Amino acid sequence: MDPHSTIAEFSLVKGGLLFETERRLRRGPRKRHDLVWRALGFSAIGWLPLLLFSLPSGGATVNSLFLELQIHAQLLIALPVLLAAEPYVDGRLCVAVRQFINSNLVAADGLQTFEEDARRAMRWRDSYLAEALLLILAYALTFITPADATRSWTLSGDGFSMAGWWNLAVSQPLFRFLALRWIWRGVVWSAFLLRVSRLPLTLVPTHPDMMGGLGFLPICQASFSPVVFSLAVVVAAYTSRVEHKGLSSNPVVYVIPLVVIAAVAVVLVFAPMGFFAPQLVQAKRRGDEGFSKVASNHSRQFEHKWFRRGPEPELLGAPEMSSLADIGTAFTLARRMRLLPFDMRALYAVVGAALAPLVMLLVADRQFISVLKFIHEGLR
């Protein structure tokens, strides 16, 4: 058996109660467009019955439903994106796990523990109990939310309409379960990184990524951007609903919640990078000490040959010049080594995903110019 088979098969998506149920219901081999149909199918389960149950009540009820931007954002945008993001995020995480091995970042005496940590993460992924608790939490969050009398499409007489009951029993729990499942996956992945950060790692102070060879991790973390976008879409839609109810007429009401979401997303997505800071500090100290000694000896020998000996040696083609440049480059890289894996492109991806719904919302509500004017006045 391949000693690294667990690493090759690592996945945080291909497991759990919902995945196993779908796998057993699916007949025949997986096809190219299955992912699209799966996302559309779940979206239709959540949204289409709301429309069908509202039609018999007349045009006013249907109009009330179509004005419900938050519901459409949840079920027609965020929910499909949460499902469609699974293979992308899973692929990036799998590449990151293999990169630890392929780049020899894990010392030989830590390989077995590394595999055990990967198997533990997949056992957590497969936990039926965890998904059952997430489903219970999704229903709890749905039913503790007070009924909103302004949602006429959810009410009929003194109680809920059929559309209202479907929203409570299926649509909202479905979306919240999928969102909570992504949070659970993030917890499992973060726990895996925490355990890996405690292994003996062979970080290289002179690695060109200036992160000891961990430069792939921030890029990997940025793969969670679609999940951030999904949650930001819902927050933006909710903000729009609050504004339309007359609780605020200031266009900046659109901006502040999404800026907060962006800040929180950056903290949550990149916080696991801090687990590696102690080993990066140690590697940097080793690099500073080792390369200072090497650079000092090399510079002393260079000075003795070129400045303290007899006639000047031939400059053209002198190997000492190349070695001096090389040792200077290595020394600079070691000195510039970061104490935290960080990449600006990854940061832009997460922040952009969190703020992307803002542009769509402001354009839809014709507030884009107002916000630009507010920002311009604030900068003056």
Rank of each mutant, 00 (worst) to 15 (best):
R336S: 14
A325H: 07
F342P: 01
Y348C: 07
A325I: 09
R308E: 12
P319T: 01
Q367H: 06
Q301L: 12
F302C: 09
P311A: 06
E312K: 06
L340M: 14
L355H: 05
D365S: 13
G310D: 10
A356G: 00
G378M: 06
R338M: 13
L340T: 07
T329Q: 14
F307T: 08
H304V: 00
F331Q: 15
A330E: 11
I327A: 01
L333F: 08
A353M: 03
K305Q: 08
L339R: 15
G378K: 03
K373H: 12
E314C: 05
L361T: 07
V363A: 10
P311W: 00
V350H: 02
A334D: 06
R309S: 11
F374M: 15
D343S: 11
V363D: 04
P311C: 00
A346M: 04
D326T: 14
R366T: 05
R338N: 14
R300A: 15
E377S: 13
E312F: 00
W306D: 05
L340N: 04
Y348T: 11
S323M: 14
P341A: 14
P311K: 09
L333D: 07
L316Y: 12
A346L: 07
R336E: 15
E303D: 12
E303Y: 10
Y348W: 12
F331L: 13
L379E: 06
S322Y: 12
Y348V: 14
K373T: 09
K305G: 00
W306R: 07
E377T: 08
P313G: 02
V359R: 11
A346H: 03
I375N: 05
I375D: 12
D365W: 05
L372S: 11
F307C: 00
V371R: 03
A364W: 15
V359Q: 07
H376L: 08
A346K: 02
V371C: 07
A330S: 09
R338H: 12
M337H: 06
V351W: 01
L372C: 06
H304Y: 14
F368N: 04
G328R: 05
R366L: 13
V371Q: 10
A354R: 01
L372I: 15
I327N: 03
V351L: 02
G317H: 05
L372R: 01
G328T: 02
G352N: 04
A353K: 02
A346I: 01
S370R: 14
L361C: 11
L316R: 12
E312L: 05
I369V: 14
L316D: 14
Q301V: 01
T329M: 11
